[in-house]
Amino acid sequence: MTKQLAGQLVREVVADGVGVAVFATDSTRDLVFTSDGVAEELDELQFTLGEGPCLDAYRFHRPERHDDMAAGEALARWPLFASEALSVGAASLYAYPLCVNPLDGGGVPFGVLELYGRSPVALTARDDVTCRSYAHTIAHAVLSELGSAYAVTSGSDVGVFRRGNVDIACGMLAAHHGISVDEAMVRLRALAFARQRRITEIARDVISGERFETDLH
Rank of each mutant, 00 (worst) to 15 (best):
E84K: 15
S119C: 05
F81M: 04
Q46D: 05
L80F: 01
A57M: 08
R118V: 13
C54R: 14
R65C: 02
L93P: 00
A95D: 07
T48W: 00
V100F: 02
A71Y: 09
E114F: 07
S87I: 08
P53M: 01
G117T: 07
L75N: 06
A74W: 02
A74V: 05
L42H: 06
F60M: 09
L103G: 00
L55R: 05
F110W: 03
A70P: 02
L86M: 13
D43R: 04
A82Y: 01
E51L: 00
A82C: 06
M69D: 01
G52V: 02
L49S: 01
G107Y: 10
D68Q: 06
N101R: 14
R65K: 06
L42F: 08
R62W: 05
E64F: 04
V121H: 04
M69A: 07
G72A: 13
L98W: 07
Y116L: 03
Y96I: 04
A57E: 10
P79W: 02
A71I: 06
Y116W: 07
G105E: 07
P97I: 12
W78E: 00
E51M: 00
L45D: 05
Y116E: 02
R59E: 05
F47H: 14
R65W: 00
S119Q: 15
T48H: 03
E64D: 04
V121A: 09
L115V: 04
G111S: 08
L80R: 15
G106M: 11
G89H: 10
D104Q: 12
G50A: 02
L86W: 06
G107K: 07
F60S: 12
Q46V: 09
P102T: 09
V88F: 10
P63R: 10
L113M: 06
V100Y: 02
W78D: 00
R118Q: 10
F81S: 05
A57K: 12
G89L: 07
L103M: 05
Y94F: 15
R118E: 12
L42P: 05
P109A: 09
L49Q: 03
D104E: 14
S87F: 08
E51F: 01
A70D: 14
E84G: 05
Q46R: 06
M69V: 14
E114Q: 15
A82Q: 03
T48F: 01
F60R: 14
C99K: 13
R77I: 02
G52S: 04
D67P: 00
H66R: 10
L98S: 12
G117C: 06
L42R: 06
D67Y: 11
P79H: 03
Y96H: 13
